[in-house]
Design a protein around this nucleic acid. Structure first.
Length: 262
DNA sequence: TGTGCCCTGGTA
DNA sequence: TACCAGGGCACA
């Protein structure tokens, strides 16, 4: 599922295909998406030229020459399918942006949980979002300060986009494994040494995924990368040979090693 | 702070 | 055929 590395990769593909191109049509083919990408919103993009694609957390912010911003969140199963106008519609196509240069950008999203919405010039505010984990501003000190205010389990805090923007279930599990931290530990109870280890681990797993040829979780489909703990319930930990366990936190599965994550 | 909802393809 | 997966949000 798309987390920070996968969204960054998708944003890069969109940049390469559509920066400088002008929107000729916007179509929506799923009622759930039409609730946020309304007819008026779709019309507001017609004739506008795409000038930038930025990523903030798991969001893509697509800016047009008049200042309108198209916000896109892939949620669970979203992705871009980029091709030509003449191509057959991809499977699970939920929305389509057609550009005057012939490029077709389709949101494909099997579970249809993805969100697209348009913000008028200057209307978008992102102040509630947490720090970007790959930014230089994400230090052990700032992380420790943020965690000190959180009494909830560290795994749940890692998923909180107001604390850390872009980390999802997979990389949260993986980072906790790398840092050897038990997922149910209260965030505020972590020592500074553990916070530092976790900060480094988050950056390590995200950087590794971003640098991977297959870009993180996309590689799972290609069978080229296996996770250390995620989706490995009952299997053996590659570090200590203990059994990988699965628990539920916040209605999501958490995988961890019962031996080396304390 | 915890739970349920939105969604639907894949899996048991 | 029933259930599971889960990001983000509303609500209790």
């Amino acid at each position: 599922m798309p987390e920070l590395p996968e969204v960054e990769y998708a944003a890069g593909r969109l940049r390469a295909a559509a920066i400088g191109a002008t929107v000729s049509s916007v179509e929506v083919s799923h009622p759930a998406l039409a609730r946020t990408l309304t007819l008026a919103a779709r019309k507001s993009l017609i004739g506008k030229t795409l000038t930038a694609v930025q990523r903030r957390g798991k969001m893509q912010l697509i800016t047009f020459d008049d200042g309108h911003v198209l916000e896109v969140h892939f949620r669970m199963t979203g992705d871009w399918d980029i091709g030509q106008a003449s191509d057959a519609a991809p499977r699970f196509e939920r929305a389509r942006l057609q550009f005057s240069n012939g490029v077709r950008v389709s949101l494909v999203d099997s579970r249809a949980l993805g969100v697209m919405r348009v913000h008028a010039p200057g209307a978008l505010t992102l102040s509630a979002m947490g720090v970007e984990p790959l930014d230089d501003t994400f230090t052990a000190e700032t992380f420790a300060s943020a965690l000190a205010k959180q009494s909830r389990a560290i795994k749940l805090v890692l998923l909180n986009q107001r604390v850390l923007a872009g980390v999802g279930n997979i990389y949260a599990c993986e980072a906790l494994w790398v840092a050897r931290i038990h997922p149910t530990r209260a965030a505020s109870a972590l020592s500074f040494a553990r916070v530092k280890r976790l900060r480094d681990a988050v950056r390590k797993v995200l950087t590794a995924a971003t640098n991977s040829r297959y870009y993180g979780s996309a590689a799972v489909a290609a069978d080229d990368v296996t996770w250390r703990v995620y989706d490995r319930e009952g299997q053996t930990c590659t570090r200590c040979r203990s059994r990988i366990r699965r628990i539920t936190q916040g209605a999501r599965s958490t995988y961890y090693c019962g031996g080396c994550q304390r």
